[in-house]
Nucleic acid binder design. Structure first.
Lengths: 198, 198
DNA sequence: TTATGAATGACCGACAGTCGGTCATTCATA
DNA sequence: TATGAATGACCGACTGTCGGTCATTCATAA
């Protein structure tokens, strides 16, 4: 016989070895040759574990996003008001935190790829991400309603809010602007409409 | 001395000759060689009029968008209610019109490019497009307020609405879903909030 | 020894972009 | 009016890059 490697583990190892590289070079400027070199394997070997460049980039980015989601879950209960909780949910977009910048850059490129690929796993994963955020947001809103802070109609606005956030994000990129404050203002306006005044 | 051609005109001619080609092949699958062949010139000549592929693709798409904007202006006064006018403003996204499909596909790819380019003219043009829609939307809302159909607070929602539309569009693509109905529902909810009930 | 599968890097094709050269036109001059 | 020098439009062969492939080699278990 011959050596049998744990394909799944090696896959993760290769991807894991390239986290930094991806953040540093971005998707477009990342070459398979570099990936192979960084992972300490031959170029051909990369293709024994991934069927194309998109797949390996996706593997790395998925890890990034899943980590970020875990982070969200771990921190979200520190927030007090409903609005604060909502804002924190969109922290990835709103945060001014420096170290996040490279992640944001890569995510921008990822979105770009997403818009021109037909890769089903990618679309599927994006749906999962939406669902993840969606469930948390729905919870937050439910709690707010139960606490008597906001009106029932807020439930119907969650969908639009999530889409608006993505819209602000994409337009900020597509037009070379910083729209964080505008998004916060928009949330303020929404809350003015749904908050129960005392 | 020598022949002097109208550089601007020829630029437009080359771009104009490739409208159909771009719609047919999309941005990524369009090659400079094909562009040259279609325009009836040599490959090198393309580079006498455009500095790179992005530039020529941009030239073609800009024409598409400007035509669509002219269309919007020509048709918008046919609408009656404020909500109808708003919906029509987002017709490019909401329309089920078959012939628009290829334009939408190309626009999706254009947005994709937009998200990973640093090309200033492109970002600049995107800002102009936003302003164009923005002004019309503000007008529509103003008229609605004057007619007593909707509340003043609507003015503060226009920004978010425009972003939400783009969000629905992008997410629909990024998640492989059709979100037209969801967007319409969202608009319905917004109008419920801002409409002055009789 | 041998069968098996992992690993490899030389190789390939596609494509954006470059560059040295050609050719048609124009016009100054004899 | 004939000529030839100057100009710039035009061209496609060529280069460099990069994603992806495949024939071959190598290591190990039986």
């Amino acid at each position: 016989m011959a050596i049998i490697v744990d394909k799944d583990k090696k896959r993760r190892d290769i991807a894991g070895a390239c986290n930094e590289l991806l953040l540093e070079k971005g998707i477009k400027n990342l070459t398979i040759t570099e990936i192979a070199k960084t992972a300490g394997i031959g170029k051909g070997t990369v293709y024994d574990y991934f069927s194309n460049k998109e797949e390996i980039v996706f593997e790395i980015i998925r890890k990034f996003i899943e980590e970020h989601q875990a982070n969200l879950l771990g921190q979200s209960d520190k927030m007090t008001s409903t609005k604060q909780k909502v804002l924190y949910l969109f922290d990835f977009f709103l945060s001014e935190h420096k170290p996040y910048e490279k992640h944001l850059d890569v995510y921008r490129e990822y979105l770009s790829v997403t818009l021109s690929t037909k890769s089903c796993p990618m679309l599927e994963f994006n749906r999962e991400c939406s669902s993840f955020i969606r469930e948390i947001l729905d919870d937050i809103i439910d709690q707010g309603i139960k606490k008597g802070e906001i009106k029932d109609v807020a439930r119907q606005l969650t969908d639009g809010l999530m889409k608006a956030e993505r819209g602000y994000m994409v337009i900020a990129w597509a037009e070379g602007q910083d729209l964080k404050q505008e998004f916060k203002d928009y949330i303020d306006t929404l809350f003015d409409l749904i908050e129960i005044k005392k």
